[in-house]
Computed example of a mutant assay.
Amino acid sequence: MAGGTRRGRLGLAVVTLALGAGCAAPSAEAEARLATLASDEALMDAAFDEVETRLLGNQARVHLWRELERRHGEVSAIQCRVSDGHLRGIATLLARQQEKALDQFRRRHVASADTVLSAGGPTPLNN
């Protein structure tokens, strides 16, 4: 029994050395699995590249929108200051125009009253 065990061990060692040295060709099934794995790896690499491209594009888009938001805030602040100044100017001009119109109205009224009085027209005391 001891002799048979030695042969079994020796045979196993020879087979192991032969396989380890690359003397035995892989089976067709192993080749098919390796080809499938290589194909899957290429598909996964392509999918990862696509996801990375989309993520980088989205990241750039988010950066652009943040920059646009920042600029919009600056422009809005400037626009508010300018509009405030313009509206104050418009209000001041309107007030002046109303004062002028009121002064003209008063002058016409006073002038027409003077004309009536100088013509000898009725006065409030002579009624």
Rank of each mutant, 00 (worst) to 15 (best):
D114P: 00
C80S: 14
V75S: 00
R81M: 09
S112V: 04
R66K: 14
R66W: 01
R88M: 06
K100N: 03
E67D: 11
G89E: 12
R96A: 10
E99V: 03
E74R: 03
H86Y: 11
R70H: 11
V82N: 02
G73T: 09
R66M: 11
T92V: 07
W65G: 01
A91K: 12
V75F: 06
R96V: 04
A77Y: 05
Q104L: 07
T92K: 11
L93G: 10
A113W: 00
L93I: 08
L68A: 09
D103S: 04
L102N: 05
H109R: 11
H109L: 12
K100M: 02
H63F: 06
L102K: 13
D103Y: 02
R107Y: 01
L94Y: 03
R70Y: 04
L87Y: 09
V82D: 09
A113Q: 08
Q97S: 12
S83L: 13
D114N: 13
V82C: 03
Q98H: 08
K100G: 00
L64N: 04
H86C: 07
A101K: 09
E74S: 12
R71E: 15
R108S: 08
V110P: 00
D84L: 10
H63G: 10
V82Y: 06
S112L: 14
E67M: 08
R107S: 03
R108N: 12
S112P: 00
C80L: 10
E69C: 07
V62M: 09
S76Y: 06
A101P: 01
V110I: 12
H109C: 09
I78L: 15
I78D: 14
S76F: 07
S76V: 15
Q97T: 05
E69Y: 07
V75M: 10
A95C: 02
Q97L: 15
R70V: 03
A77N: 10
T92S: 11
T92C: 03
F105W: 02
H72M: 10
V75K: 11
W65N: 06
W65V: 10
G73A: 08
A113F: 02
R107W: 00
L68Q: 12
G89I: 06
R96Q: 13
D114W: 03
D114I: 00
R96N: 09
V62W: 06
E74P: 01
D103G: 02
R71D: 12
L94F: 05
S112C: 03
W65Y: 08
H109K: 11
R81G: 07
R108Y: 05
S83R: 05
H86R: 11
R81F: 05
L102C: 05
A77L: 12
C80A: 14
S76W: 01
L94Q: 15
Q79F: 07
D103I: 02
Q79E: 14
D84E: 15
S112R: 06
A113S: 08
D114H: 08
R71Q: 09
E69F: 05
Q104D: 12
V75Q: 13
R66I: 03
G85E: 03
A113N: 05
G85W: 01
Q98I: 03
L64D: 14
R88A: 15
L93E: 02
D103M: 10
K100S: 00
A77M: 02
E74C: 05
R81K: 13
Q98K: 14
G73W: 07
L94M: 08
S76D: 14
H72L: 15
